[in-house]
Amino acid sequence: MISVSRVVKSYGSGTAQVRALDDVTMTVKKGEIFGVVGQSGAGKSTLIRTINSLEQPDSGTVHVGGRDMTKLAGRDLRQARHDIGMIFQHFNLLSGRTVRANVELSLEITGAGRAQRRSRALEILELVDLHGKADAYPAQLSGGQKQRVGIARALASSPSVLLSDEATSALDPDTTRQILDLIRQLSKDLGLTVLLITHEMDVVKRICDSAAVMSQGRILEQGSVEKLLTTEKSLLGQALFPLGDIPPTSNAVVEITFTGVATDRPVIAQLARQHGIDVGILGAAVETIHGRQTGRTRLELPGDERAVSGAVADLRSQGLYVEVIK
């Protein structure tokens, strides 16, 4: 649905030049929720803004639903943007318009008639659970409610893509969860493709099907969240399960990642029983990813090389993801 290919974008010139996007290639599949994570200044906003051409790349192409956004201008570009909704960290609502009028702006722009605007606005406000606030002004709303208006405005013209630039970063944890769940629900109900950028791991954990990790204008890794978690030295894996530094030890250290049912298996007891290894637990973290319990345990395995590799092979044969750290 979205395909970014070899995109480069620099700001400034000479020694002050910043490569905000440095040869970025990325694919977002239809109907999925794709999260781009990275620290502040990584180039995430620049990336998402090239998708709806708020920013023109220096080189490379950006395709959305078959259209090359970098080639569009004027009327064609505006038309393409009707099909791409966007929400923002600071909501960007018009303070002088009521909630309903803010949503209607989207429809005024697409040229809908008055009656149609009104009914569509109320319909979409119902969808984001804000029907009671249609006549309120943004200043009278909480942050979460403001973002719901933002979502309603973005979706009023029935786009097939939703872009989210840190949409939950100004919200408290509870509200963040509600907004994320709403996005997930809408994505499912409307068949929306969602590209969101965030510096919060929680967002990826909660709703993303796929993710990319970005740093200094480059994408370091990307793929489905599940696949990344079972990829050696995955940055996403390390960020989601912060197990800390490895303590000095002469023994082998392995990390086991459990998903779903595997969590319940008495792995450690089994290692001791079947391989005679006296397992030491160095760290563990459990997260709910996509509603599924997912955990990673770092174990110290004393014993000779053969015993250890036998144990690792055994674990792998049970379908567990095992990474040998040292």
């Binding site: 708020l54 505006r78 943007r81 909704g85 702006l105 722009i109 013209s157």
Partner: peptide, 14 residues
């Protein structure tokens, strides 16, 4: 705020 202009641009406003 500049963000309001961007929001309108993202909606495809002239």
């Amino acid at each position: 705020p500049k963000g309001l202009i961007e929001a309108a641009q993202s909606l495809g406003a002239t």
